[in-house]
Every structure is written in structure tokens, then in C-alpha cells.
Design a protein around this nucleic acid. Structure first.
Lengths: 149, 149
DNA sequence: GTTTAATACTTGCATCTTGCAAGTGAAATC
DNA sequence: GATTTCACTTGCAAGATGCAAGTATTAAAC
């Protein structure tokens, strides 16, 4: 089999660059990490700090400070869990939802442009393949332990 | 079409986490960025500083300092281009090659484990798909301008 | 052929990010 | 009730980042 790593390296770097350029919405500049945090808060159900930090594979202390900034920017809300007062449940404010949605839209429109290079059959094949890959990665013990979302 | 972005987000994060854990070889600890630099130096032909910095989408000043560390660690060599003395050509030292190869091996063995979850047909489909994707991204104007390797 | 502009880097500085260690307070275990 | 564990938060020190301003070299303009 050919060198799998270089195949993936190229792909993920390109997607990473895409992601990097997708983070400014209006006057509001969001860092790459922050956009990932917004994304995860939006996609998980009543997530705690720890959950999102684990998902993203970032240290909880760094994460704590990132969230503090997002709270200051009025994009994220932190509510103590009524059942366990140690836990902070994260959610997006209206503004946070707007920003997250905006980034999502930008990313999707770029991706659609990329996919527009392909015919229908190719598109479907590629999408199915990524699903396969994601499932295989989720099952693999070697990698990605933190993330099981 | 379903939400493409979340599909890619999951995939690239998993691969990113994989990458993150692949960077220590023996006693030598390498940061993620440094491993990317080693990879690119190894894969491009007599690359200049600017070329690699562009490929990786990092600022040239940050890159300059990263390369300085790698030179100090005796993993990278910097040679002035005889034809244009402004340019520094980068190459790996023997030790740098060893480290880069080691990381490559780790990544590939993890990827093979992931692919071992699939049957032959799925494997081929997935690999072909990533090629398709990389080609489409290379053609797209929207993204990844810096990288054309 | 000298001046001007552009290129390929490098350094200064100020800011942000990172993660370990050490803390707080709350829940679970003993 | 004492100890341990858990979910976070802060102190610090180290590293990463990027703009501005520098050097040296090459290319372009006049």
C-alpha cells in the first residue's frame, strides 16, 4: 500500500488551512481553537467543560481560560449543573449561535466548492468513504481516545 | 447533502490527535509543528525557508525561529543557495531523517490499524476517495492557496 | 551605473497560548 | 467523619505568535 500518511497529511493540512481562514465573522475575530469550542458546544448535548476539553484533546487549564474569553466575548454561557455543583454546563448565547452558524456556513460553502469539482458518483463515494474512515477511527484503540462523539 | 463540515471536522480532529501523539521519538520530543516541518523538508526538493513556511501556512518569522530550534537540535541543516545568497535551502541531517522516518512509521502503523477495520474493497475506495478529495482541493480556489505540493 | 524597489530572511518586542503545580470547593468512598 | 476523587480555577514560567523594523542580496528603473 502506498504511503497513507502523506495522503492524510496533505488532506488534513488543506482542511486545516481552510478552517484557519474561516474564523472571522463580521468584526468578531475568533481563533481556530475557539471556533472548535463553539462547534462542539453546539453539537453536544449540555456538555460540561471536561467533556469538551476531552473531545478537543486540550488541557483543561488551557480550556478553562479559553472558555473564560468566550464568556467575556458573550458567545458562551456557563451554568452550574444543578445535580452536581462541581460541573459547569456550557451553552452558546444567541450571539455565539450566530457566529457558530456563520462559520459553519463558510466552511460548508467552501466544501461544496471543492465537491463541485466532482461528479455525483464521486461525491457519494467520497462522503461514504469519510464515514467509513470516521467509524474505523472511532473503533481503533490506537488513536483518538479522547474523542468519541 | 448532509453537513459536510461536521464530517470533515470529526475526521481531521481525529487525525490531528493522532498526529499529536506521534511526535516523541526516543528521548527526543518534537512539537506538532516541528514534525510538520521535518515532513515537508523531507518531501520537497531542496526547499527554501519561504517555500516550507508557505506550505504550512505559518508566518515566516515564526518559521524562522522554529527552524533555528531544529538546527540547534541537529535535525535540520541550512545552506545558502549558491545562485541566490538570500535564500536558505533546508535539508534534514542524518538524525533528522531518522526522526522524520520514525514519525512516519508510527503514523503509518496507526493508519494501518485503522484501515484494518475495513475490507479490501472499502480500503481501496477510501484511498481513492482521499486522492479525489486532494485533487479537488488543489483545484479549488477557495482554499489552501499556500499549499500546492 | 547608480538609485530604487523587491525579495529572503532575521531580530525586538509585546501579546497570547500552553501546561504543570498547586489551589478551591463539591461529591463519592471508606 | 475522614480521605479520596473529581471538576474546575489560578500562579507561574516557558514557548509560540506576528507585527514592525532591521540586514543583506538581487532585480528593476531610469
Amino acid at each position: 500500500m502506498e504511503n497513507l500518511r502523506s495522503l492524510f497529511q496533505v488532506m488534513t493540512r488543506r482542511f486545516g488551512l481552510l478552517n484557519k481562514n474561516c474564523c472571522s465573522v463580521g468584526g468578531c475575530d475568533i481563533s481556530l481553537i475557539q471556533s472548535h469550542i463553539l462547534y462542539e458546544i453546539d453539537n453536544q448535548h449540555n456538555p460540561s467543560m471536561q467533556q469538551i476539553a476531552d473531545t478537543l484533546g486540550t488541557d483543561i487549564t488551557t480550556f478553562s481560560r479559553q472558555v473564560q474569553s468566550l464568556v467575556k466575548m458573550n458567545l458562551v454561557k456557563k451554568m452550574p449543573d444543578p445535580a452536581d455543583k462541581r460541573i459547569s454546563i456550557l451553552s452558546l448565547t444567541a450571539e455565539g449561535k450566530y457566529i457558530a452558524g456563520s462559520i459553519d456556513q463558510q466552511m460548508n460553502s467552501f466544501l461544496h466548492e471543492v465537491f463541485s469539482q466532482m461528479n455525483e458518483f464521486e461525491k457519494e463515494t467520497v462522503i461514504r468513504s469519510i464515514h467509513l474512515l470516521n467509524n474505523a477511527m472511532a473503533k481503533s484503540s490506537a488513536c483518538c481516545k479522547p474523542f468519541q462523539g
